[in-house]
């Protein structure tokens, strides 16, 4: 089993303002999808990111907002266990972001410290 990172990305939508009910429904879709992968014992670690952020560039330039100069924003990521990248892609298929115009980038992890 290798580890893969799924990065959830979507284009920045300034007018994005879901109702609390939509938010709740959305969270539930995500949790049901996570739960399905976790039930296979294949989740290593998952984090949702807050929309607020800052970006640090060379020469100590600090820009507010996570998406400075980037077309797409990372909404979160999950690290999964899979035999190979194709199995990891299969796991990615149910991701709710795909129904909202986003996409999932799947990358194999280079373990640090060997």
């Amino acid at each position: 089993m290798k580890e893969f990172m799924m990065i959830f990305k979507s284009e920045i939508n300034e007018s994005f303002g879901p109702t609390p009910e939509q938010m709740q429904g959305n969270i539930q879709q995500w949790m049901d999808w996570f739960g399905g992968i976790a039930a296979q014992g294949k989740i290593v670690n998952a984090n949702r990111l807050s929309f607020e952020g800052k970006t640090l560039k060379p020469n100590n330039v600090i820009v507010d907002g996570p998406y400075a100069e980037v077309k797409e924003i990372i909404g979160g990521y999950v690290i999964v266990k899979a035999a190979n990248i194709d199995e990891a892609m299969k796991l990615a298929e149910g991701c709710p972001i795909l129904n909202h115009g986003g996409h999932v980038e799947v990358r194999s992890i280079i373990a640090m410290n060997g």
Binding site: Q28, M31, D32, F34, G35, A38, A39, Q40, G41, I43, A46
Partner: peptide, 18 residues
């Protein structure tokens, strides 16, 4: 119940929870 199981699996996997 389903939502609680989803969260439980993220904390600790076990076949019976799955």
């Amino acid at each position: 119940i389903l939502q609680a199981y989803n969260q439980l699996l993220l904390i600790e996997y076990s076949p019976i929870t799955a």
